[in-house]
Amino acid sequence: MKKLVKLLVSSLLVAAMAIGVCACAGSGKGGNGGGNKLIKVGIINNDPNESGYRTANDKDMKATFTEANGYEASFYYSLKNEEQIAAAQKFIQDDVDYLLISAAGTSGWDGVLEQAKKAGIKVILFDRTIDASEDLYEASIVSDMAKEGEQAVSWLASQNLPEYKIVHIQGVMGSSAQIGRSGALDTKVAAESNWSIVTQQTAEWSEETAQQIVQAVIDSGESFNVIYAENDNMAKGAVAALDKANISHGVGKDVIIIGFDCNSWALQELVDGNWNYDGQCNPFQASYIDDIIKNGAKQKVVIMEEKGFDATTITADDVTKYGI
């Protein structure tokens, strides 16, 4: 029995080494100039099941980094920072040309990025930034969550309500989306005398919790005219509570509904006039990355263009084009 195990382990090791040797021999570094040579990319992402955003992001990556486009892509998914770092080390050993990372956490990446640099592997960050020296990566392609919040808040201000009584439903506390989107609203509320927060509570991205929070506000009999939910799911839960209590919402109704992320179904709610505004969090970084790999990076931090949709101006085309 023991012998069998030893045999198995050793043969596996031999096989692994053989593959390693092949990989080393097979790919010349920086082979992006060659016409038929595939560019090897190792893509480290968060679990696609995490959210609709991530699903769309992963689909976009898979659609762009294909053999037809000149890429040989390997994917690794984890929501844990340490596992992602270990995967990055593995990709470095596999001698990829590019390492594309959407980091789960911001710290602990310095060591592995230095390894990558020594091995001549170029690193491009997407969606999430990390705490590491800028010369350790080629570029980072990110959404500006604070800008998303500012866009939504300035849209809300443009509605010219005599008074703003806002139910603010936050995402998981400390996440970059929460910080950015809450920050913009908090600043505005502090600055304007006719803006007030009725309640500010985290629903941790969950629609059931959002429903409970809004329910509690309704049960306490307080009046409000804006729901500012930091993602679409929570806006949906809030709307379910409003429906139950027979409070009208949407274009020209009692309560203004604001969501984020631009899920297709949420944009459809805008088209139907049940919601008022949805801010985009652009998950389509693949084309930006493709451009950087093929034409080189022009700047370190690339902030993606992001839209905000108003229910009165949105079209059916927008739903298919920008919905995730």
């Binding site: 995490e50 991205w205 969950s206 629609e207 059931e208 429903q211 799911n233 949906k236 379910a240």
Partner: peptide, 16 residues
């Protein structure tokens, strides 16, 4: 009951 409450599902956060 949970899926009936909202007529939908978010896999990552339902019954979190």
């Amino acid at each position: 009951i949970k899926v009936s409450r909202t007529s939908s599902i978010t896999y990552a956060v339902i019954a979190n």
